[in-house]
Design a protein around this nucleic acid. Structure first.
Lengths: 207, 207
DNA sequence: CTATGTGAATTTATTCACAGCA
DNA sequence: TGCTGTGAATAAATTCACATAG
């Protein structure tokens, strides 16, 4: 099993497990079984074990997993064991909130640059970051930033992505509500917040 | 095929198709084939047709789909054919951005109430909405609000959810980075923004 | 001749069940 | 005995291929 292709769903779930482990480790928990972690996260224990088995055995039969050790292992698998300098493009309402969002830090993300087209915003400081003109995007390569967050209006999303790719960016989190086309060596995850909310009514029982 | 259980993934993708259709309809496009829609969205045409087939045939062989008609059909399937009054709990950085986010409107969501615990925020107006004390959550039932967005800190997420459920809420979009437990008649979608970003490095080719 | 809709084939993912280790 | 790790079994989703309708 160890050498088969890893399902995307497994990768997604590993980030869920990591979230739980980071929390439980901070609480001082040293050991955890797949069942306990599963209960905490609202998932199945055998799913956790199967997902981990794609990458090797990290636990001790009869005991469980060492929280710290498993945390490190999953971080390594997800390449979250080093700091990722990240750029943000589009400092509007949502962009500002994302820029100020404290939650990225625990995963090792460091938003190190912010860009906009609005002359009124350029030069302003937000969270110790000076907003730059998007024409400076080309500097990202030299600054070793290869991850970016797009929070620009829909019409600007594709051209922003194009500029980011040209600047050597390898991964994009796209908050714009549209598909963007990039070379296949670049990974894009589109996160359309309204679209997530739009899934809820389908499941809601009649009130 | 028509009477088999509809996969969750199909429901998720319908919201993607709807997003594309809403855009294309606004552009004045009257007809569209599964291939054209697929190309626009970056998906497969046969996936679109298969997903739609769970609910019946909406297209015309040899021609395609009428954009307006298909839009309406999908809205109906997703129960997005009426306005959904929505409450938001937690008017912090992220909550404020979500409150101001214009993108919910196109799907028929109307954020009609906002709550917080901070006395300094209560009473303030944001986007024509007066922030209320969370102890007023119980009024949601009477106000016919059965959808809610949670943007409170992690430690308050579960108790917020409990209060929302008690207030008759049937669907919750949870931005807090934790699993929340609710009765199974209530649908929760957890959207942990940092966790989405955390999936990117795994896929990024070495720079 | 074009594009839908859908059974069937294929691929993929989930769940089970238990061998094996501490 | 308790819990992991993983082949095997089951279930589900995706893809194909084509009959059918306009």
């Amino acid at each position: 099993m160890r050498y088969r292709r890893v399902p995307d769903e497994t990768v997604r779930r590993l980030s869920v497990y990591l979230r739980g482990l980071l929390f439980l480790a901070k609480q001082g928990r040293q050991n955890i079984s797949s069942r306990d972690l599963a209960d905490f996260l609202g998932v199945n224990p055998w799913q956790i074990r199967k997902d981990l088995s794609y990458f090797g055995g990290f636990g001790t039969p009869g005991v469980g997993y060492k929280t710290e050790k498993l945390t490190k292992q999953i971080k390594k698998i997800l390449k979250l064991d080093s700091v990722h300098k990240t750029a943000l493009v589009g400092v509007g309402n949502l962009g500002s909130a994302v820029l100020a969002y404290p939650g990225f830090r625990i995963y090792g993300f460091n938003i190190a640059a912010a860009f906009d087209t609005d002359p009124k915003k350029i030069g302003r400081k937000v969270k110790n970051i000076t907003i730059e003109d998007v024409s400076n995007l080309q500097t990202l390569k030299r600054r070793k930033i290869n991850l970016a967050i797009i929070t620009v209006p829909r019409d600007a999303a594709q051209q922003t992505a194009d500029a980011l790719v040209k600047a050597g960016v390898k991964g994009i989190l796209n908050f714009s509500p549209c598909h963007i086309t990039v070379p296949k060596k670049v990974k894009v995850i589109t996160l359309d917040i309204a679209r997530v909310l739009a899934r809820l009514p389908y499941y809601m029982s009649a009130s």
